[in-house]
Amino acid sequence: MSSHYNPLQHPEVQQGTTGRYIAAFLASAALMGGAYYASTQKLPLMEFAATAAALSLAALVSQLALFFGLNISQAQIWKGVALFLAIPLFIITIGMTVWAFSSLYSRTMPMDGMLMSGQPTLLQ
């Protein structure tokens, strides 16, 4: 019965530890600082994008693993499954939108052609 139920003994309350949280903070902050440092280094665009993406991804993973405490224990497995099912949707939403519009822009918005020559002031 709920009156005998001690919410503070719940595994999700008991799972947090100071050390893990501090580690999460340090890891995320260091990784994001590193990404910022890379942006000041005049790298070629693609190289920088790859570096920054890798560092940010690592920061996200460190937050998931250390702050959120996501693992495959009985308590957390369904959260993991839900996230696992959702990640492809994130990629699809952004990726396919970008793909569709890159095709659309090149076909329906010929910026450097007729328009620019006709009205050079518009986009300046």
């Binding site: 309350v13 008991q14 947090g16 530890t17 949280y21 702050f67």
Partner: peptide, 8 residues
Amino acid sequence: SLGTVSLK
């Protein structure tokens, strides 16, 4: 998060 550690 450290606050929730005190919750324990």
